[in-house]
Design a protein around this nucleic acid. Structure first.
Lengths: 315, 315
DNA sequence: TTGTAGGCGTTATCAA
DNA sequence: TTGATAACGCCTACAA
């Protein structure tokens, strides 16, 4: 009755349903899991950053994943890829022990070689905004080459020729944006040495520090591109504290549009990677992998530029 | 051997361990769960807000919960208390079907009467910053009466006598802060009608809207207290757009200290509810409840005032 | 349309 | 110190 088998008479069905609600019966998830093929659980793995759940970037992705999972009757299990997780091969044990049907690896970190373990096994796993070795593994990513191009074209069109880039450290997405951004700037006529690079680790403080160095060593730059919204906010602080007005003296734009960046003062022009949708698509993808409806997912999500307060360089 | 039973000879232990690694054996979590008493899974339930995982408030709490759970070998299952969750009594099914050993309800919403279901059952559940019916259920909360007192004393000591409060809507924590704040202001010599109230729903936009109304109808107020950091940021926008300088013309302070508020410009004086620690303590609490080592948890976490840029009213 | 038996991979118990 | 066996509660298949 409970599994909606069609061969049950309406009469017994009623009786069973009645008894169920009367006695408060609920199927035991483990007994069910033991006998069934799937567990209807997806594991979400985040990088080992301190207070990573408080990061709006990951939060947006998780919200997207959650909403899709919920709509299709799946639960989410949380994990962080810390040292123990890697050492004990938790990422594979999760699937082997059938705690989860599939794993989503959100966010990229350079050197995640353990992911190679998934190449042999047929375990369902999907990387979310996580490039790995030229796409050897299934992934869903925002279009970083496109965002780099949009950012470069926007700034160059405004007249900027000397642009600082504050990129995030040790992540492939950062590498990808970095390389593409430089290439685009050069293509659009900037000199390579006029695109100085700073490195932060995605926090406001690191963005501020990187921007201070950038503005001190290259006071001639007229714009800064920051690899995420928080580093952009840090760059704003740095610029203010060094007496540069924004956006009149210095334009700052951010990558990964998040409400925070929109609400900042000045309102940041940003490349919008719709992280919520990215999460939804990833959740959908891992489920098709689980069901073996497809075997390869290499999907690139579109990107748009949201222009708020940016101006050209001071004459 | 695998369960570290002491009565095993060193010899067989080695042999078994060897075979295990050779054949890649992993215990099936469902079979184990079926036979064992506990599942070592804790469910975390968040309120049904849009993109709730992207909210730093909940993120901080989850980070604390996660870190403690991880240290004690527990997994976290995510849930959102949406309409279906309540209608189908998922909150109780989770435990009944033994998907989780215990549930943490994070964040408060007025009218969560379904939580009453936990009064009868002996199911382990713990409310986190979630007051319910005068503490009928186990809970761990930040000390909102204390934070209201700290905020009032700080502002009154600076000379403020007319203070706007922008509180969050429909949450008991907001009620609690609201009532205590008013009482404290009156105790410290303010007139009741000089503490006008605005209501937001925790977003920057709603804080901005509430602050605009407040500043238009009561231009005589010299300070604003906002129920969270984002509404405080909104209030800053509103004040700026209406030509008030901060903190010279108008002091703004926030509740629930989060890096974002610290990094804002001007840097907000805030009441620091250490949400990460709150999460850790909650995780610890639910586990003692699960193990039946205690039956009642009514814990109040200390609070501190972090003074950044606030000044007294303009003479 | 309904009842019954066997198996899923553990843990716990009892006998050897 | 070890090996054998009965639950655990569900699903599937087959028999009634």
């Amino acid at each position: 009755v409970l599994n909606n088998n069609a061969r049950i008479s309406e009469d017994t069905r009623k009786k069973v349903l009645d008894a169920v609600s009367r006695m408060g019966y609920h199927p035991d998830s483990h007994a069910r899991g033991l006998a069934a093929k799937y567990t209807r659980v997806i594991s979400v793995v985040l990088p080992p950053l301190s207070h990573v759940f408080a990061d709006a970037y990951f939060g947006e992705v998780i919200s997207g994943i959650y909403d899709h999972a919920q709509e299709t009757g799946h639960k989410l299990l949380l994990d962080v890829a810390n040292e123990r997780f890697v050492r004990e091969r938790e990422y594979i044990n999760l699937l082997h022990s059938r705690r989860a049907d599939g794993v989503l690896f959100v966010g990229s970190t350079v050197g995640n070689t353990y992911l190679l373990d998934f190449l042999d096994t047929g375990y369902p796993c999907l990387l979310v905004n996580n490039f790995f070795e030229q796409g050897a593994l299934n992934h869903v990513v925002a279009d970083y080459p496109a965002s780099a191009r949009l950012a470069a074209e926007h700034l160059v069109a405004l007249g900027h020729r000397k642009i600082g880039l504050i990129r995030g450290e040790l992540v492939q997405t950062g590498d990808c944006f970095h390389q593409n951004f430089i290439a685009q700037c050069v293509r659009l006529g900037c000199a390579l040495q006029d695109i100085p690079i700073g490195v932060g680790h995605f926090s406001e403080a690191s963005g501020q520090a990187a921007a201070e160095i950038l503005l001190r060593t290259r006071p001639d730059i007229t714009a800064i591109v920051a690899g995420n919204d928080r580093m952009a906010l840090g760059a704003i602080q740095a610029a203010w504290s060094m007496g540069r007005r924004i956006p009149e003296d210095l334009s700052i734009i951010g990558v990964d549009d998040i409400p925070q960046a929109a609400g900042s003062r000045p309102a940041l022009t940003t490349v919008r990677h719709d992280l919520y949708t990215l999460g939804r698509v990833a959740a959908e993808g891992i489920m098709t992998l689980v069901r073996k409806e497809c075997t390869a997912i290499h999907r690139v999500m579109p990107v748009e530029l949201v222009v708020r307060e940016t101006t050209g360089p001071t004459a």
